[in-house]
């Protein structure tokens, strides 16, 4: 039985898959996206969080079976409303063993993951096998730009995307729209072309950058100083053709 570190469980998470869902936030992320709005999810360890009513510990270790039992309490609710559980983070694949163990304890529950896709191919496959839906981020198609804005290479991500496409599993592509970073016509077309023919693609979501992304940095003693223009409006290009598009 393995333990994992989570930093939040959110009920009625309305933007993380179909129906009424509970979203579990797993702590720790290998990426350092300049626009990250969950800085408390970056470090894999519990840490101090300066909350409105005083300091608290953000993040706690939990056993897979306890987390699963907690989630199963709302199973009836999920079933009544075509919902389920979504794992996000941080980057949930960073705690792959724990994640798989929890998922194995949730038979019959619709399971989704929200991922950057940045993990080893065998890890991705192992997790994918257990999922009903994948919410997959494409932050940038250009390797150099990807490294610049997220700190990591996008080759493993693109490889896992290929695995996802071939698996036939339903998936949603999510693109954080960051002004001047990835909202160029060229990058959007490249993003579209990566997924447009995949049978599992349900839709593409554009998540517009919002200035409030920086709100939580002081609460975890971090500084928010992205090198892009946070006041600019990201460009939205009308190039997605038949792909179902959702702009959030």
């Amino acid at each position: 039985m393995s333990k994992g570190t989570i930093f939040s469980i959110e009920e009625f998470a309305i933007n993380d898959g179909p129906g009424i869902r509970t979203t579990v936030f797993l702590k720790g992320c290998p990426l350092r996206c300049a626009w990250c709005h969950n800085p408390e999810g970056l470090s894999p360890k519990p840490q101090i969080f300066h909350a409105m009513d005083g300091d608290e510990i953000c993040g706690r270790e939990v056993e897979a079976k306890d987390l699963a039992a907690d989630l199963l309490k709302n199973r009836e609710f999920f079933e009544m409303n075509g919902g389920g559980v979504t794992f996000t983070g941080g980057e949930p694949t960073m705690q792959a063993d724990f994640l798989c163990e929890v998922m194995d304890l949730l038979p019959g529950v619709h399971k989704a993951i929200e991922t950057s896709g940045y993990c080893k191919p065998e890890v991705f496959k192992k997790i994918l096998d257990r999922l009903d839906l994948v919410l997959f981020d494409i932050k940038h198609t250009d390797p150099e730009q990807h490294r610049r804005w997220t700190g990591v290479d996008n080759a493993p991500i693109l490889a896992n995307l290929q695995t996802l496409k071939l698996s036939g599993k339903p998936f949603v592509i999510r693109v954080p729209l960051i002004p001047g970073v990835n909202d160029s016509l060229e990058n959007m077309e490249a993003t579209r072309d990566l997924v447009k023919d995949a049978p599992g693609l349900q839709r593409l979501e554009l998540l517009r950058y919002h200035k409030t992304a920086g709100a939580k940095y002081p609460k975890v003693d971090m500084e928010y100083s992205p090198a892009f223009d946070t006041d600019a409006e990201p460009a939205v290009h009308d190039i997605f053709g038949n792909i179902k598009l959702l702009i959030l």
Partner: peptide, 21 residues
Amino acid sequence: TIFRNEENLEKLAMLIRSYVQ
């Protein structure tokens, strides 16, 4: 802010229905 799209409205409807059920 939760009402950003039509889908979320349906989820709210589900939430209300669940309380009734």
